[in-house]
């Protein structure tokens, strides 16, 4: 439970951790775009290279990084197998009914697997190296232009940061309630799915009640201190653009250029 509760933030000090969250968000979007622009193994190779550098410089242990892949391992496998068996290629190695294994099929499934892995790992690198609070700050800052169309950016950011802030608290609360009900003989582990769902009720009701109570209290506390969102508020932590961010932006532009050029000159994967 705790594992989820902390988001995934891995608390060490590194080059990547110190980057501006705005930059990291932009970088992530650019990186994902690059992954989709890449049409051959050279392009993907460039992405892999950059991601490998990010992992090394972030000082997040490799085991931890690979852990994020575990959640989608099935999806990756499924995609790979389906493409391997049904891709209509020319160089047939093996055929059985409608199932064909072709050279192109193999290449394409490897390509897809790498693409999927890159997608998952790069997004989790963002959460490994950025605290939820920094992330919301970054999102708020990036969404600022939307204020022009009267979009309540600040309120949205506030909701997000409160929600993120409350996840560990609610998790703890859930665990406490679960323990209390366990102490009264509740059994959450055995029985069929319906029994288990029913067993959750004694946790869910107190948890919802406490969430509402907390929300009420927080609202009161904020109002008591005359909280007003928007223009007049200053920030405790100002986001600053440093040489690290400049360097990263350079890498980002370089990557996109490389991938585009590789796509134009080397063509598609097959």
């Amino acid at each position: 439970m705790k594992e989820v509760a902390f988001g995934q933030y891995y608390p060490v000090d590194s080059f990547i951790h110190r980057l501006d969250p705005r930059l990291k968000l932009v970088f992530l979007i650019a990186f994902i775009t690059a992954i989709f622009i890449a049409s051959n193994f050279w392009g993907l190779g460039a992405c892999v290279l950059v991601l490998a550098a990010i992992i090394v410089f972030s000082r997040v242990p490799l085991g931890k990084v690979l852990r994020s892949v575990r959640a989608i391992a099935f999806l990756v496998l499924f995609t790979a197998v389906i493409n391997l068996l049904f891709y209509a290629g020319e160089t047939v190695y093996f055929q059985w009914g409608i199932l064909v294994v072709t050279k192109e099929g193999i290449l394409f499934s490897v390509f897809l697997v790498i693409r999927l892995l890159l997608l998952v790992i790069c997004s989790s690198m963002l959460t490994y190296t950025t605290t939820p609070v920094a992330l919301t700050d970054g999102i708020e800052s990036l969404l600022t232009p939307l204020k022009w169309i009267r979009f309540p950016v600040h309120a949205l950011a506030l909701i997000m940061s409160i929600a993120l802030r409350m996840i560990p608290t609610l998790m703890e609360e859930a665990e406490r309630i679960q323990n209390a009900q366990k102490a009264r003989g509740a059994d959450f582990e055995s029985g069929n799915i319906f029994r288990r769902i029913k067993a959750i009720v004694p946790i869910l009701i107190p948890l919802l009640l406490s969430a509402f109570r907390r929300a009420d209290e927080l609202g009161d506390a904020m109002e008591a201190r005359c909280y007003m969102g928007g223009k007049m508020r200053t920030k405790y932590k100002k986001l600053k653009f440093s040489w690290r961010d400049g360097l990263s932006l350079f890498v980002c532009v370089l990557l996109i250029t490389a991938v585009v050029l590789l796509r134009i000159y080397l063509g598609d994967v097959i």
Binding site: R176, I177, A180, Q181, R184, G185, D187, P202, L209
Partner: peptide, 26 residues
């Protein structure tokens, strides 16, 4: 038997009777 801090936050039954009987049934 274990009574946690603020045990009133762990009540969930529709009636007092039902909530008290929870442990007994379990």
């Amino acid at each position: 038997g274990m009574v946690f801090q603020y045990p009133e936050h762990q009540l969930f039954g529709e009636t007092v009777k039902e909530d008290v009987a929870f442990g007994l049934k379990n």
